[in-house]
């Protein structure tokens, strides 16, 4: 009983230490706050007046969020995958494959698939989006089946999918060169009050949905159970195969959203290079956000923080003029430091 009294009148430092060791996200949040403070200092205060400073600061932030929405969305799906103890290396390549499908359907040139039969504008975009989402689901489902029915380790299955998707896309798109109509670019670039919010809104809405699924649906809890002890989960009547398959399907769906956003935002797609490295960026964000690679532990909120930490750090490095080649090194350092800090509970 005297234990409880002690908690009431502890000093700030002890409170801090307690939060640090009991709340898994506390250290992540602290890291983000430190980054934001440094970034704000680096941005400087010499813009002449608070109004001007605030507008610069806000614009900088909107930039950060917008530029990281794609990785942010992919990292949401990656969180579920990693919580089940899996991994998805294929996201960068499936992004390209899905992007190609979308581009073919929305092609605005006279020879375009839908344009040539007289379907243009919003109906064509809708068909393109639906086909993109279907493609994402199909690719995710295929990966899921390879892992569950084919009993392949996720690393191998997704490594294979990574090579297949990019290579086949490049071959198929060799002779086709679809153009993205202006209207379609509005999906990501719609400007409200001079600012483009749309990617940020998509990201945050999806993050909220994924958070809600993880905490408040049977499926979400099953994801954690499967990752922590698959056998016990199975013997508790959980369809573990289905849970694992679903996780990759959701991943595919989210990659599709990211792909559609990317096509809309950039207005084109470089099939050879687009999305390359996304899998590692997403995995890095998930890990920085406190999700355990061995499964069973982690959270969507942590992943959002993880994406932000890496994003703000990149912005900070940019502001203080660190050469681009060195920035990757900092990303490596932050991943390692994050995991070292999370080890504290184990000792």
């Amino acid at each position: 009983m005297n234990k409880i009294e002690r908690i009431d009148n502890i000093e700030p430092l002890a409170w801090f230490r307690r939060q640090w060791s009991t709340h898994p996200l506390f250290s992540t949040l602290c890291a983000l706050l430190v980054m934001v403070v440094l970034q704000t200092i680096a941005l400087g205060f010499d813009q002449g007046g608070f109004g001007a400073w605030l507008s610069l600061w806000t614009r900088n932030w909107l930039n950060i969020l917008r530029n990281n929405a794609t990785i942010g969305i992919i990292a949401l799906g990656m969180t579920f995958v990693i919580i089940t103890g899996g991994i998805d290396l294929a996201v960068g390549s499936t992004l390209v494959a899905i992007g190609a499908v979308v581009m073919v359907f929305i092609d605005g040139s006279a020879t375009g698939l839908l344009t040539s039969i007289g379907i243009t504008g919003a109906p064509a975009y809708l068909v393109g989006i639906i086909m993109g989402l279907v493609m994402g689901i199909v690719l995710g489902e295929v990966t899921g089946c390879l892992i569950t029915i084919g009993k392949l380790p996720p690393f191998i299955a997704t490594l294979g999918m990574m090579n297949i998707c990019r290579s086949v896309t490049q071959q198929c798109m060799q002779t086709i060169n679809p153009s993205v109509p202006r209207g379609f670019t509005q999906i990501a670039n719609l400007s409200v009050g001079g600012q483009m919010f749309m990617p940020i809104i998509y990201w945050l809405v999806l993050a909220f949905i994924m958070y809600y699924i993880s905490r408040h649906t049977a499926f979400g809890r099953h994801v954690y159970a499967v990752g922590s002890n698959e056998r016990a989960a199975k013997l508790s009547g959980i369809n573990t195969q289905r849970v694992k398959r679903m996780v990759y399907t959701i991943m595919g769906l989210l990659v599709a959203v990211a792909s559609i956003l990317q096509v809309s935002r950039i207005g084109s797609m470089d099939y050879a290079n687009a999305g390359s490295g996304y899998e590692m960026d997403a995995i890095a964000a998930v890990i920085v956000g406190g999700t355990s690679m061995s499964g069973g532990k982690g959270s969507i909120a942590g992943t959002v923080l993880g994406v932000l930490i890496i994003a703000v750090m990149n912005n900070l490095l940019n502001l203080i003029g660190v050469p681009p080649f060195l920035r990757e090194a900092f990303k490596g350092v932050i991943v390692i430091v994050a995991v070292l800090l999370q080890k504290k509970e184990k000792v």
Binding site: R221, Y224, A225, A232, G237, I238, G296
Partner: peptide, 21 residues
Amino acid sequence: KENGIIKDMSIFENGSLATLS
């Protein structure tokens, strides 16, 4: 230990695992 409990989950979550669906 191997087949029954989910060690990363709380007592309540372990106790309600079979009825979540």
